[in-house]
Computed example of a mutant assay.
Amino acid sequence: MEMGFFAPRHMDIGGGAAARIAVLLGRFGLSRPLIVTDPVMVKLGLVRRITDPLEAAGIVCTIFSDTVPEPVDTVVEAGVAIARGGAFDCLIGFGGGSPIDTAKAINILLAAAPSARMRDFKVPVAADTAALPLIAVPTTAGTGSEATRFTVITDTETDEKMLIAGLGALPLAAVVDYELTMSVPPRTTADTGIDAFTHALEAYVSRRANPVSDAYARSAMRLIGANLRKVWQTPQDRDAREAMMLGATLAGLAFSNASVALVHGMSRPIGAHFHVPHGMSNAMLLPAVTRFSLNAALPRYAESARLAGFARADDADQLAGARLIEALEAINAELEVPTPQGFGVARADWDALLPKMAEQALASGSPGNNPAVPDAAEIVKIYEEIF
């Protein structure tokens, strides 16, 4: 078997890792960072978890905090302007998936000609060039962006959520400190946690899965399956928070090397058109897409149920697969995941955009990795089912 594997060059994992960021920069000879974060991280003072140790080490920090929850090309362009105006030798993406994805996109666009636009790099283009070393510091246990070679950016002119993939999006290093997640709001905990499980599950059933991605996906599903409800019910459970953070990173390594599938392909248009948070739109779709795909990869779905603790070790595949779907539906109910209608989407608006959303989902390429590859009509039917 021939395969490649991609991962950050260095990962500092564990409670308190954020306090060691100056040591990490020093290891790579870096000293002039541009920190890409969001207004909440600044307002709550959480960004000081990295700026204080950097300043104590004599490293002057510049902060770009204009990122938005679902990254858009105009914010990326604003970040590029800041980056071009300073003598920075690295970028630090600090926050949830949105600031990290924005930092990745800034880095890719920064390396391009001044006339380049973000849409020039969407899949199937290989975005393999970046301008600066990137260090990713996640504050949520979900996106896995700290470990992946992907970023997702919305084109504000077309309302298309663009998948951008390549080595240019792969961080040089990551700081994975579960203590940064201890104050995450319950809604974010739920959405990012289900997002992480979706990454692991889709990587495991992907047509592009390989033995290495399988190993990461299996470990991630064990950790997330056992702890997702715990962090929702008991947010201060440090062991559960640590397990979820590690699980999210392992899931990121898995899908970065096996790719995601139909859930993500269908999720991106929902986020672009209706501004549903990414993890939440994944959660809306996950049970229905799993039901659609189940028999095309039954042994893998059944094993996923067993790994996550949703089925018993001796359950037959068909029973384990059924229990997987039941568990995903139960998790959505317990973690209060709304339907699109419950989120506030109007039925007429939803129906009017179904053909376009199906077209955009297919164009992303992700549905082609799914065990059962749908056509546009089947995608529309799933959209109708989840509304």
Rank of each mutant, 00 (worst) to 15 (best):
S65N: 12
G95Y: 00
L167D: 03
T290R: 04
P114V: 13
P185Y: 02
V276A: 10
K122C: 04
T129C: 09
T234C: 11
R218Q: 15
L250D: 06
F292N: 12
R27T: 12
V40Q: 05
R300C: 11
A147K: 03
R222Q: 06
A254I: 06
P114E: 12
T151D: 01
A165W: 03
D351T: 14
A320Y: 10
H10A: 12
L353H: 11
G279D: 05
T67R: 02
M118R: 12
Q233S: 14
K230T: 15
N370C: 12
D191R: 06
A113D: 15
F6R: 12
A209L: 07
L335C: 09
A258D: 14
A136E: 02
A87Q: 11
E157N: 10
A322S: 15
T192R: 08
V40P: 00
R32H: 11
T102C: 09
S115N: 09
Q360V: 05
I379M: 12
A240W: 12
E70K: 03
D375K: 15
G26E: 14
A17D: 02
L250V: 13
R9M: 13
R208H: 13
S267F: 06
G4A: 06
P287G: 09
L170H: 02
A217K: 10
S219Q: 15
R27M: 08
A147R: 00
E359H: 07
P185S: 00
L132G: 02
L172N: 06
P211Y: 14
A288H: 14
F343G: 08
R119F: 00
A308G: 10
N227Q: 10
I50G: 00
T148I: 05
F197K: 01
F310V: 06
R306H: 04
R238I: 13
H199N: 08
A113I: 08
E384T: 13
V125K: 07
E160S: 06
M3Y: 13
P374L: 03
L54E: 00
P374S: 06
I270Q: 15
G93D: 07
R49A: 04
A7K: 08
A226R: 15
D214A: 11
A217Y: 10
I382F: 02
H199T: 07
Y204N: 10
A7P: 04
R27E: 06
R84T: 00
N332H: 10
A308D: 03
E202P: 13
G309N: 07
A111W: 11
D128S: 14
P340H: 13
A136M: 02
L228G: 08
V184H: 03
L167V: 03
G79H: 00
P138M: 03
R207A: 09
V125D: 00
Y301M: 12
D237C: 14
L163Y: 01
N227D: 09
A165Q: 12
A272Y: 03
R291P: 06
H264Q: 08
Q318G: 07
D314G: 02
A254M: 12
N295C: 05
D177K: 10
G45A: 11
